[in-house]
C-alpha cells in the first residue's frame, strides 16, 4: 500500500492537467503552485524515488546481514542446505526478471518517442514476466513444503529430505523464505503498479512530454531485479 501511495504522491508532484501539448510552457498554469518549473518537478520526483530505493536497499541489507552472519558461522550447513534449492529454477527466474527489466527499459525508450502502442505492449510483456516469476516461485515453494521444508517451527524434512535435518538448517531456510518472500511481495507490488501504469498509458495520460510515473515505476522494478541478482547466487549457487 505504501508503495502505491508513494508512487501516486511522487507522480502527483509532476502531474500536468491533461492537454498533452508537447511543449508545455511553464506559465501555462498546469504546474503545481509550489514548483517553479516542470524541470524542477521532474528532478524532485526522481530524486525522491531514488531516496526511496535507498531505503529499500537498507531494508534488504538487514536480511543480507543475517545471511552473512549465519553463513560465516555455519558454512557447511549452508552449503548442504542450498543443495535443496534447484539452481535451474533460480536461473530461469533470473533470466525472466532480466528480460522484464529489459522490456521496462524499452518501454521508457518508446514513451520518450511518443510511441504509446509499443510502450503498452512492452509493459504487458513485463507483467507477463513478473507473473512467470511468481509461478516458478510458487512451484519452488510448494515443492519445499511438500517435503516439510518450512520456515521456523514447522521445519521437519521428510520424504527423502531427512538427511537435511541438521542443526542450523532451519536458519538457512528461514533466511531463504524471508528473503525470497519479501522479494516476492515486492514483485507483486510491482505488478500492481504496472497494471495501474498500463491503464494510464492506454487512457492517454502519458506522452513524450510527461512520463514521470512510467520512469519511476521502472526504477522500482529495476531495483527488484538487482536484489534478485544478488539473491540468486547467494542462495542457489554458492
Amino acid at each position: 500500500m505504501t508503495f502505491t501511495w508513494l508512487m501516486t504522491s511522487l507522480a502527483d508532484a509532476t502531474q500536468y492537467r491533461a492537454q498533452p501539448s508537447p511543449r508545455m510552457s511553464e506559465s501555462s498554469g498546469t504546474l503545481k503552485h509550489y514548483f517553479v518549473s516542470s524541470e524542477q518537478q521532474f528532478d524532485a520526483a526522481k530524486m525522491g524515488m531514488w531516496l526511496f530505493l535507498v531505503t529499500e536497499v537498507l531494508l534488504f541489507s538487514g536480511m543480507f546481514v543475517a545471511y552473512a552472519v549465519y553463513r560465516a558461522w555455519y558454512p557447511e550447513v549452508f552449503a548442504l542446505s542450498s543443495e535443496l534449492l534447484d539452481w535451474r529454477l533460480g536461473g530461469l527466474n533470473t533470466l525472466v526478471l532480466l528480460a522484464s527489466s529489459f522490456t521496462v527499459a524499452l518501454s521508457i525508450h518508446f514513451i520518450q518517442k511518443n510511441e504509446k502502442e509499443k510502450t503498452v505492449v512492452l509493459l504487458l510483456l513485463t507483467l507477463l514476466c513478473a507473473a512467470a516469476f511468481m509461478v516458478v516461485k510458487y512451484f519452488e515453494y510448494t515443492g519445499k513444503w511438500s517435503h516439510g521444508i518450512f520456515p521456523g517451527a514447522g521445519f521437519a524434512p521428510h520424504d527423502g529430505y531427512e538427511a537435511y535435518n541438521i542443526a542450523y538448517a532451519p536458519q538457512f531456510f528461514s533466511i531463504y523464505f524471508v528473503m525470497t518472500g519479501i522479494h516476492g511481495v515486492h514483485v507483486l507490488v510491482g505488478m500492481g503498479i504496472f497494471v495501474w501504469i498500463v491503464s494510464r498509458v492506454v487512457r492517454g495520460h502519458f506522452s513524450a512530454a510527461y512520463y514521470t510515473p512510467v520512469e519511476l515505476a521502472g526504477l522500482y522494478w529495476h531495483l527488484v531485479d538487482i536484489i534478485w541478482i544478488f539473491l540468486f547466487p547467494l542462495l542457489y549457487l554458492i
Binding site: 520456515p151 521456523g152 536458519q171
Partner: peptide, 11 residues
C-alpha cells in the same frame, strides 16, 4: 513462526 534468527532457544 519461530524462524530462529534472534531467539537463543531456537539457535
Amino acid at each position: 513462526m519461530q524462524i530462529g534468527i534472534f531467539d537463543p532457544a531456537l539457535g
